[in-house]
């Protein structure tokens, strides 16, 4: 027990440090990387709490996918953080005071003895909470689970409906039209009379438009 407590405090302090660095670092890329570190240590804490599925999901989804995308966006955008952070230190004392005050008030009102906390039951060695989660998700929580998938579907539809537009200047081609093309659409046979000798044509009078440029 002592050892797990020790690991918890180490992870918690790394998490807090990383969280602080996310908002204090001057370089947005560093902020994003610190956020990755924060997620990673949070996953470690979840493993300590025997929530291994959540820990893996956090690593795979947030660290693996979301944050990598986020990093790309941050690297591509040219953000001048100094402008965004103007006045940060001026406001810090007031904001910090109010923050501490609010936290203190919340602790006073919402001590843990107010919640009906159910003490965790020790599980046997072969217990897998991934399997348990899968079980309740498709039985007891079927309806909210399906609704969540509908919400995601709506998000896809909305994103496409709001952003996809046919741009006039694209050179994209429609494959089905391409396949359906007939010889007559592409080739036009023009009968040209064989060359005969004619009298020399007089050149038209030069205009003020320079030739060769449309």
């Amino acid at each position: 027990m002592i050892f797990t407590d020790f690991v918890f405090y180490i992870l918690a302090s790394i998490l807090l440090f990383a969280g602080m660095r996310v908002i204090t670092s001057r370089n947005p890329v560093h902020s994003a990387l610190n956020l990755v570190l924060a997620f990673f240590t949070a996953a470690g804490i979840w493993v300590l709490l025997q929530a291994e599925f959540l820990a893996i999901a956090l690593l795979v989804v947030y660290v693996g996918a979301v944050m990598v995308l986020f990093l790309f966006v941050v690297m591509m955008l040219d953000i001048n953080l100094d402008k965004l952070r103007e006045g940060f230190w001026d406001y810090l004392p007031v904001a910090g005071f109010i923050g501490v005050l609010m936290a203190g008030e919340m602790v006073l009102i919402l001590g843990s003895n107010h919640f009906a906390i159910i003490t965790a039951v020790e599980k046997s060695a072969g217990y897998s909470n991934t399997a348990e989660l899968g079980h309740v998700m498709y039985t007891q929580y079927l309806l909210p689970f399906e609704l969540a998938s509908v919400v995601l579907l709506v998000a896809i539809i909305a994103a496409i409906a709001l952003t996809l537009r046919d741009r006039k200047e694209t050179k994209s081609i429609n494959p089905s039209q391409q396949v359906k093309v007939k010889r007559a659409d592409r080739i036009r046979i023009v009968k040209v009379k064989s060359e005969t000798e004619v009298a020399e044509v007089i050149e038209p009078a030069p205009t003020d438009k320079p030739r060769g440029i449309k």
């Binding site: 909210p144 609704l147 969540a148 919400v151 709506v154 998000a155 909305a158 709001l162 537009r165």
Partner: peptide
């Protein structure tokens, strides 16, 4: 359940947000 009510609310809200911006 509070969970179902919240899911329904989010489903509605997401649709309405995008409908408001529908005239792009």
């Amino acid at each position: 359940s509070m969970l179902t009510i919240y899911m329904g609310l989010e489903l509605l809200s997401l649709c309405v947000y995008s409908l408001v911006a529908f005239d792009r």
